[in-house]
């Protein structure tokens, strides 16, 4: 402060400083209430999401029976004479893409995390960390473009090389899955690394004192100790993969079919929503309403995954803090 410090309480009052403890305390209560109001906004958002999805789903289920929706194995609302609204092909498509992404990203992510926290020299770390941060900051539509322009042609070439036939078409679950895998790789790595770093140094020292190599210490002590955190990171990454939209809309295809063959094209739940909202269906039809029901199922899936992930994370924090 540039002016001279006040020496006299009267002078302080004269400058318009708060006059009493009571006034200050009431300001405190006011601020607390206002901030609480802002905090409640987040609860309002959740309530609105659940409310809107439940309402629209109920309107959809007034036209299509719940049993058909939840047990049907055929999903073709836009093509054909008879419309079928069985959710399973969409769920299977989502799970197939997620599975490919998980097979790609989860082991690589874990190994990278172990390497970063246990092995990597500081200089290598200072290269790898920014690389992962950049990967984490790239918009998903860019990964979608990458899938279309690099991954799909590479897979087509590889498929032809191995089997002699064109097994991969212009759309495939594998192409989208690999792109999603690259997208979730930084999430797995950074969350797993946090978990591994949270393991107390004493445990490592103990392992080394018993004659462990770094591999022994990592594989037999550190990773088991951080297992819950690693599991949580897996779940949170899988949540992102399940909800990923732009990559699958570009690379996975538009045909909802029940398959486990990664070179087939599949439609995920999010890709179906993109198809509807881009205007393939009239806004009042049952197809349009079906996208809200699909969104409801998607919300439920991601909610369960995140909830479980954070429960595990909370438990693992308690262990070491």
């Amino acid at each position: 402060m540039s002016e001279a410090a006040p020496t006299d309480m009267n002078e302080v009052r004269g400058r318009g400083r708060p006059k009493s403890r009571v006034l200050q305390a009431s300001w405190d209560v006011f601020a607390r209430t206002a901030l609480l109001g802002c905090a409640c906004f987040s609860i309002l958002i959740t309530a609105l999401i659940i409310g809107i999805l439940a309402y629209e789903t109920s309107r959809f289920l007034a036209e299509v029976s719940v049993v058909d929706f939840l047990t049907g194995l055929e999903w073709n609302p836009l093509l054909g004479e008879e419309k079928h609204f069985g959710i399973w092909p969409l769920i299977a498509g989502t799970l197939l893409v997620t599975l490919v992404a998980a097979i790609f990203a989860l082991p690589i992510g874990l190994v990278t995390a172990i390497f970063l926290s246990e092995y990597a020299p500081a200089r290598l770390r200072s290269v790898l960390k920014p690389v992962l941060e950049v990967l984490a900051g790239i918009p998903t539509v860019v990964y979608g473009f990458f899938a279309v322009i690099v991954i799909t042609p590479s897979l087509q070439w590889l498929g032809k090389l191995v089997s002699g036939e064109a097994v991969f078409g212009p759309y495939s679950a594998a192409s989208a899955g690999i792109a999603v895998g690259i997208m979730i790789l930084p999430i797995v790595t950074s969350l797993s690394e946090d978990a591994i770093r949270a393991v107390p140094k004493g445990l490592r020292d103990g392992a080394y004192a018993l004659g462990s190599t770094r591999f022994d210490a990592s594989a037999k002590v550190v990773v088991p100790a951080a297992l819950s955190g690693i599991m949580a990171s897996y779940l949170l990454a899988i949540t992102r993969a399940v909800g990923e939209t732009m990559i699958v809309a570009l690379a996975a295809g538009g045909l909802a079919q029940l398959t486990i063959l990664p070179w087939e094209q599949v439609q995920t739940m999010t890709a179906y929503m993109v198809q509807i909202f881009l205007g393939d269906a009239p806004a009042t039809g049952v197809e349009f309403k079906s996208s809200f029901a699909v969104a409801g199922i998607l919300f439920l899936m991601t909610f369960l995954l995140t909830f479980t992930g954070y429960r595990i994370l909370a438990r693992f924090r308690e262990e070491y803090e």
Binding site: T239, F292, L305
Partner: peptide, 22 residues
């Protein structure tokens, strides 16, 4: 509940927020 809710919101797919916005 607030904390749990915020963690959960962070995991909601962005396309679902699109539906809320719509």
């Amino acid at each position: 509940l607030l904390r749990l809710n915020i963690s959960n919101l962070a995991g909601v797919p962005s396309i679902v927020y699109g539906i809320l916005g719509l």
